[in-house]
Amino acid sequence: MSMMKEFKEFAMRGNVVDLAVGVVIGAAFGKVVTSFVDDVLMPPLGVLLGGVDFTDLKIILKRGVQDAEGKFTDVTLNYGNFIQSLIDFMIIAFAIFMVVKLMNSLKRKKADSPGVPPAPTKEEVLLTEIRDALRAPNKPTL
């Protein structure tokens, strides 16, 4: 089997395609959550905390280091960005938890719901007739 044919079989399997779709949707969902946190959630939270912009929260480790372009910049520990990333993660993790919980409950309902029992096979019908005939009182045959 040629390598191209093997690759085509691998790439066209359902699991690989499903995984690719999941990664693309997950990346888009991550962008939506990041925008929600940065643009909707954090500004009012900053106002409630006294007008704090979380992206401005940092600790200056060293002042005035010259970068490659000749500008002086501070070496900082940007813990405000970390807080925003942490909130992003918590929202994404909660949303995934809720989706998994919903999927599990739907699977459980499907497994718990009694279906229509299958019709007995010919062998089962024959065995049932034999059993019933053996249980019946013996009648003399003429």
Rank of each mutant, 00 (worst) to 15 (best):
L86Q: 06
I83S: 00
V33C: 04
V37T: 07
M4N: 09
L126E: 08
K8F: 05
N104C: 06
K122R: 10
V33S: 06
T76L: 00
D39S: 09
K62G: 02
L61M: 14
S85M: 09
A27G: 12
G80P: 03
I87V: 15
I91F: 15
S85N: 14
R13L: 01
L142H: 06
K8L: 08
K122T: 01
L41Y: 07
G22R: 02
P118M: 08
R135T: 07
K122F: 01
R135D: 10
E129F: 12
L126S: 02
P137D: 11
N138I: 13
D74F: 05
D18N: 10
A93L: 12
V65D: 04
F72V: 07
G51C: 08
A136T: 11
L41Q: 01
A27F: 12
R131W: 02
F36W: 03
S35M: 09
Y79K: 03
L102E: 12
E69V: 08
I59M: 12
A119I: 02
L86H: 05
K62L: 14
L45V: 14
V125N: 02
V40R: 04
S35K: 13
L127A: 12
S113N: 14
K110S: 13
F10W: 14
A133L: 12
K71Q: 14
V33H: 03
N104D: 14
R13Y: 00
M3C: 03
R108E: 15
K122P: 05
M98H: 09
T121C: 00
I96R: 02
P118K: 11
M3V: 11
Y79D: 04
V33L: 07
N78Y: 04
I92A: 11
G50E: 11
V47Q: 14
K8A: 10
K139C: 03
E129V: 10
E124N: 07
G70R: 06
M1Q: 08
E123K: 05
T76F: 01
E6P: 00
V37R: 01
A20K: 01
A136N: 11
A119Q: 10
L102F: 13
T55Q: 11
G51Y: 09
G30W: 01
M4W: 10
G14V: 00
A95H: 06
G30M: 04
I87F: 10
K110W: 03
D67A: 03
A111C: 05
L142V: 10
E6T: 10
R135V: 06
V52I: 15
K58R: 15
R135M: 08
L41K: 01
A111G: 05
P44K: 05
E129A: 14
I130E: 13
D56W: 01
A28I: 15
D132H: 08
V116F: 12
P140W: 03
G64D: 15
